[in-house]
Computed example of a mutant assay.
Amino acid sequence: MSPEIVKNFAPSGVLRASINLGNPILANKDASGAPVGVSIDLARAFGERLGVPVELVVFDAAGKSVEAVVAERADIGFFAIDPVRGADIAFTAAYVLIEGSYLVRDGSPLKRNEEVDQQGVSVTVGKGSAYDLYLTRELKHAHIVRAPTSPSVVETFLAQQLDVAAGVKQQLEADQKRHAGLRLLPGRFMVIQQAMGTPKSRGQAAAAALEAFVEEIKASGFVADALSRHRIQGASVAPVTTQ
């Protein structure tokens, strides 16, 4: 990395990485409360590449994590690719693909993903999450109810007697084990393309350097090793993009 690129990413001499704990596939806390996970591993690897220390800026929801990068309170972040977010953030290609699923009660008449978008059906999502952004565009008839964070979606779904909970398949499966009488609809309603991003104001050269880093860590097996090391289910390494 050239000194100019390093300065673009870490003008203060420290790389501030925005971490979203609302997506348990990519980030979580260990027994001591410290952030751990795939996105933390990637942030530290990129800091090593730049030759600067890494500061983790931790949030409980995707929307807050995005806002930190847009406002340049963080230098890089880990987000689902979405055109709304792309107005201010330069995304790499995806490094991980994550399934989005629907959860309903056992007694629900809903059997298929395609049946969810009906008048009178309420769908719970985490506010500002990729699922919120996607379903806001795609659902034409169902009503969206926004929980404060993605991990609180099922609590909101149960407390408010709503019809459907939408989110990361792994999170919903964990909630299903904790609460009796729930089932996942078969398949998935979307695939999240999880990417790294940096403020567009950092310039095209910085965006290209981050893109190259992501392609390298996919091709080298770093991302696959991180998924395995953290025992992640429900996610796969995104294909390497031909340069």
Rank of each mutant, 00 (worst) to 15 (best):
D41T: 13
V96A: 15
V125P: 10
T92R: 01
S152W: 11
G187Y: 01
A93T: 15
D75C: 02
V116C: 07
E67G: 12
P53Q: 06
A93R: 13
F79A: 02
V69Y: 11
S220M: 08
A209F: 05
K177E: 13
G107C: 06
A195P: 04
Q204V: 14
V57Y: 03
Q176Y: 00
L184I: 07
V58S: 10
E211F: 13
E99L: 11
D60G: 13
S122N: 10
K29S: 12
A142G: 10
V104L: 06
A180N: 12
Q233I: 13
Q118V: 02
R112C: 01
A17Q: 11
F78K: 08
P199V: 03
V116I: 12
S201D: 01
Q119N: 14
A209E: 15
A80T: 13
A235Y: 07
I5M: 07
R229G: 14
P186R: 02
A166V: 04
T241H: 13
R202I: 12
E4H: 10
E99W: 10
S39W: 09
L182G: 09
A235R: 05
R44G: 01
A212G: 06
E99A: 14
K127Q: 14
E72H: 08
P3Y: 05
G22V: 09
Y131A: 14
A212S: 12
N28E: 12
K7P: 01
S129E: 01
V6L: 00
V36C: 07
V164T: 05
G203N: 01
E173P: 02
G22K: 06
A166K: 07
S2V: 11
Q193S: 14
A212N: 08
Q176P: 03
L172N: 12
L184Q: 03
A61M: 05
E155G: 12
S150H: 13
S152R: 11
V121E: 01
E115R: 07
Q160S: 10
V123G: 05
R178K: 15
P151H: 00
E155T: 12
L42T: 04
R231C: 05
P148F: 11
K7D: 09
Q161H: 15
I98E: 14
H143C: 04
L210F: 05
A61H: 10
G221Q: 04
V164N: 04
R105H: 11
L184P: 02
D175F: 08
I40N: 10
T241Y: 11
L210C: 02
A165R: 11
Q233E: 15
F46P: 09
I40L: 10
E4Q: 14
E99V: 02
P11S: 09
N20T: 03
K218N: 06
Q160K: 14
G37A: 05
S152F: 09
A61T: 10
V58L: 09
Q243E: 14
V125M: 06
S18R: 01
Q119L: 14
V145A: 13
S101F: 09
D41Q: 08
L26I: 12
S129D: 02
V104I: 12
S150P: 06
G187R: 09
L15F: 05
S18L: 03
L158T: 10
T149Q: 09
A17Y: 09
I5F: 02
N23F: 06
A165D: 13
A142C: 10
F157W: 12
G234V: 04
P109I: 08
